[in-house]
């Protein structure tokens, strides 16, 4: 007997159940189909503007930094300013995402932008977000051909471009947007929830930033209209 059958058999014996138990199967199907939400914190159910403000507060509380810009064309300038303000090289590895590629980088000739996955020598990366969760200041990044995961972890400094319309209240709201885009039960290879830069407290419980992942997480927040709480609300 295979390990699989042995284990499932042992589980069923302990649960005192036959493999074909229609009522149990129905209960499981119902649960999977309903995708019932648990208690959603009140702070994740604010009106869109307040939700964006809460996102900023919470992200900053988790040691992320954030710059708000009004127009997409302001993004390269905001990044250049952030890099010079932190004495970082004007060199970026950005996700090969048209939304990032098409930004007016040429207005900042000193800023060197390459696109692709991260390599060990990249010091600064730029990613686009899929969503952001206000309740804890958490970014949600999905992997894909336009979004390599290594950008989120290898470089010392990780910059994320986020739009206010991508800010939702709760994790469940973010999953709803994922379902709207990918279909029920389907996920991209990796969904990264990121709340602030890498940290550790493994030495005497003192918090140190930049354990293995980025030492700095910077968010450029583009105001493109209201944040929302549901998939239909994306603006």
């Amino acid at each position: 007997m295979s390990g699989r059958e042995a284990i499932l058999g042992a589980v069923r014996r302990s649960l005192k159940r036959q493999p074909e138990d229609a009522a149990a199967r129905a209960a499981v199907e119902a649960r999977l189909g309903a995708r019932q939400r648990g208690p959603i914190p009140a702070r994740a159910q604010l009106e869109p503007g307040a939700q964006v403000d809460l996102f900023q507060t919470m992200a900053e509380e988790h040691a992320a930094t954030l710059t708000r810009v009004a127009r997409a064309e302001d993004v390269p300038g905001a990044i250049a300013e952030y890099l010079s303000g932190h004495n970082l090289p004007q060199r970026l590895r950005a996700a090969p995402d048209p939304a990032l590629e098409n930004l007016p980088w040429d207005r900042h000739p000193l800023l060197n932008v390459a696109h692709g996955r991260a390599s060990a020598s990249d010091e600064v990366s730029l990613s686009g977000a899929f969503a952001a969760v206000a309740e804890t200041g958490t970014l949600m990044l999905l992997s894909g051909e336009r979004a390599p995961t290594t950008l989120n972890f290898l470089p010392d400094t990780h910059i994320v471009m986020l739009k206010t319309s991508q800010v939702v209240g709760s994790y469940e709201d973010a999953w709803a947007r994922v379902r709207a885009e990918f279909g029920n039960g389907k996920l991209p290879r990796t969904a990264n929830f990121i709340t602030g830069p890498s940290r550790t407290a493994d030495i005497e419980q003192t918090i140190q930033l930049g354990a293995h992942g980025p030492r700095r997480l910077h968010i450029v927040l583009l105001d493109d209209g209201p944040g929302g709480n549901g998939p239909g609300n994306a603006g």
């Binding site: 988790h62 958490t138 894909g144 990796t190 990121i194 709340t195």
Partner: peptide, 19 residues
């Protein structure tokens, strides 16, 4: 409030994925 990284992984890399 939330750990820094919560990562949901589903299968190996997909066609077109760079990593």
């Amino acid at each position: 409030e939330f750990s820094t990284y919560t990562t949901v992984s589903t299968g190996p890399k997909r066609p077109g994925d760079l990593d």
